[in-house]
């Protein structure tokens, strides 16, 4: 089980800020493919991955990152702090 978090417009498109997912996806990319199938909103959120950043267990990661043992995966747009 992995906790999936969404922020900013990914949250708005996916229609949720947090969900628990039963998955055996080996990588972030594989997880994204599974999430896309959850709803039209999810598919829209992940329609252009160039605009999406990911963190695995609160550390920035790539879409190729393995999910072995990961507990939390977050998706969000490029950050705009400061």
């Amino acid at each position: 089980m992995i906790h999936v978090l969404y922020f900013a417009w990914l949250r708005e498109r996916a229609g949720t800020s947090r969900e628990s997912v039963e998955t055996r996806a080996p990588t972030v990319s594989a997880l994204v493919e599974e999430l896309r199938a959850r709803s039209e909103g999810h598919a829209l959120a992940f329609s252009d991955l160039r605009a999406v950043r990911v963190a695995v267990d609160q550390k920035l990661a790539s879409f190729e990152a393995p999910l072995d043992g990961a507990r939390e995966v977050a998706f969000f747009p490029p950050m705009t702090g400061g």
Partner: peptide, 26 residues
């Protein structure tokens, strides 16, 4: 620190104006 906060701290800004709201693009 400012350069890192802009692009590597997980904050997202949404602007609210008379015409509605919009997420700030990086």
């Amino acid at each position: 620190l400012m350069d890192y906060l802009k692009s590597r701290a997980p904050f997202w800004k949404k602007e609210l104006g008379p015409g509605g709201s919009a997420w700030v693009a990086a």
